[in-house]
């Protein structure tokens, strides 16, 4: 097990190095000179532009900029935001709990709606309830988040006045307000997840319900409820759980449009603003941090698999 662990951790380092090169290299392809953006309406002054370039090392060769950035990153220093001059690590740590809260709430909403609907749809296959659930799921998948978001704001905030239209309150400051500010964006994101989960649960359940062991269970005289819940669902959930973790990881990477509409100060909003302002250190830091989370989650999954299945340890 120790050897397996060492091997897997050893694989992470080159992965992150290649990723850092990609992140750094790809953003150089973005058009738009960061010095011009940072200078704003002072862009006409060559002295101002030269100073910005010198201060941010933009006048140095790319390899030098990359090595300088990398040498700081390995000691945990992601640099500072060019736009608001705050340390990038501070921004990431500030946004991470926000995105985590939103992702968790969305995921819970997605699972609570998606999995039962998928099961019911499979059980009632080709009946009106199945068609209705499928139609709703199709609507959930194809509805753009920004449209649904604006509609929810207009209904629950402007017309009914029940919920704040946008903004964010951390749960430790005021749990109710925190819930009130995140429930709509979580619902918008959650409906998307629910639709995906519903479709996959339905497909997996249909597969499971046609298996021999289900027929055997029915032959034993078990009630349909027990057959579905204890025999079919348990087996059908394995691919759904895998899909669920991927969906959760996607939510953690930040929901760009939803965060923008509801003004949720999470990862998605951070990275969009940073890209538009050519705030390179923030873009690099956020992408790298997101990748690191993914890599660590995948390592954790591998370790769990290895713990459960000894054959994997030797692989």
């Amino acid at each position: 097990m120790t050897g397996f662990l060492v091997r897997r951790v050893g694989q992470i380092i080159p992965t992150l190095l290649i990723l850092s090169l990609l992140v750094f290299g790809l953003q150089q392809l973005m058009p738009g000179d960061p010095a011009l953006i940072l200078a704003g309406e002072e862009r006409g002054d060559p002295q101002v532009l030269a100073q910005i370039r010198a201060e941010l090392m933009l006048d140095r060769p790319l390899w030098e900029q990359y090595l300088h950035w990398l040498s700081r990153v390995v000691v945990g220093d992601f640099g500072f935001s060019w736009r608001i001059r705050l340390p990038v690590s501070e921004l990431i740590l500030e946004k991470l709990p926000v995105t985590f809260q939103l992702a968790t709430m969305s995921f819970v909403i997605g699972v609570v709606i998606g999995v039962p609907c998928g099961v019911l749809s499979a059980v009632w296959k080709d009946r009106p309830a199945d068609w209705a659930i499928n139609a709703v799921a199709l609507f959930g998948i194809s509805t753009p988040n920004f449209w649904l978001g604006i509609m929810l704001i207009l209904l629950f905030s402007v017309q009914l006045g029940w919920l704040p239209p946008s903004g964010y309150v951390p749960p430790w400051e005021d749990p109710w307000q925190s819930l009130a500010t995140t429930i709509m964006p979580a619902f918008v994101l959650g409906t998307g997840v629910a639709s995906v989960l519903m479709r996959h649960t339905r497909a997996a359940m249909l597969g499971a319900l046609s298996q021999d062991y289900v027929r055997t269970a029915r032959a034993k005289g078990l009630s349909e409820r027990v057959v579905v819940a204890k025999h079919a669902l348990r087996n059908a959930l394995i691919p759904v759980v895998t899909l669920g973790t991927i969906e959760f990881g996607r939510l953690l990477a930040g929901a760009v449009l939803t965060e923008q509409i509801f003004t949720i100060p999470g990862f998605g909003k951070l990275i969009v603003d940073a890209v538009f302002n050519r705030d390179y250190p923030v873009v690099q830091g956020v992408v790298l941090a997101t990748a690191l989370i993914f890599v660590l989650l995948s390592l954790l999954a591998d370790l769990l698999y290895a713990a459960v299945n000894p054959r994997l340890r030797a692989a």
Partner: peptide
């Protein structure tokens, strides 16, 4: 639109 919705609400 969201800015205005905040004001209206």
């Amino acid at each position: 639109t969201v800015r205005l919705a905040n004001l209206q609400s």
